[in-house]
Design a protein around this nucleic acid. Structure first.
Lengths: 104, 104
DNA sequence: ATTAGACTTGTCAATTTTTGACAAAGTTAA
DNA sequence: TTAACTTTGTCAAAAATTGACAAGTCTAAT
């Protein structure tokens, strides 16, 4: 998706006609801090993802994908990581999965 | 690379015949904590990457790639992120790059 | 031009997370 | 058994993140 997680929240909010104060209340958040989140000056707390999915009736799994991909993208961007980084990361994920027993 | 960053350090260390205490001293680290790093119970501090590249005469850029890919892989693994996450992350990196002025 | 509502930014104490340091216990080989 | 090496547990100190509030900007309506 061609937007950050903050921009995504802002779009959801405005498209649904909420003010910062209104959405912040639903997310149990200070409106000033929600503003920072929307403008990529703070991170959204993972523990609020389910609240967010409730408010906008979104699929939580998709929201999580959106959320974690954002964290990863920011890390890569901020640290000027080269293109190989994600390829290597994918290999390492496979390695970790093969290495560790599947948790039931 | 089919190993975690911790395992990579451990391999470098043993292949070069160092004890934990010896390498820890070179990295300005407590040997008990280095042990934890090697066994994936603690994170290696990014600020020690250049020391590490000095000790084993490694290319710092490659080491950084190794390091950050590890962080990302762990995040994905720990949070059971789906396969799409990295694809999305890549798109978002491109978005962030297009969005922000190139810093000189 | 003033007001009201919406949004942004700055600050900082409080909470949370990570780290450094040390003790103690486990492992291995002479 | 020693001794050297490694692992694990704990916890205070340091660092990072968060919640809360004040103060600011911006816009639209009157």
């Amino acid at each position: 998706m061609r937007e950050t997680f903050g921009e995504y929240i802002k779009r959801l909010r405005t498209e649904n006609g909420f003010t910062l104060t209104q959405l912040a209340a639903k997310l149990d958040l200070d409106s000033a801090n929600l503003s920072k989140i929307e403008n990529n000056k703070r991170e959204f707390d993972e523990r609020r993802l389910s609240l967010l999915s409730d408010v906008f009736d979104l699929d939580l799994a998709k929201l999580r994908t959106e959320f974690f991909s954002d964290i990863i993208a920011k890390k890569i961007y901020e640290n000027n990581c080269d293109e190989e980084t994600l390829v290597l990361a994918e290999e390492k994920v496979a390695y970790l999965k093969s290495k560790n027993p599947i948790t039931i």
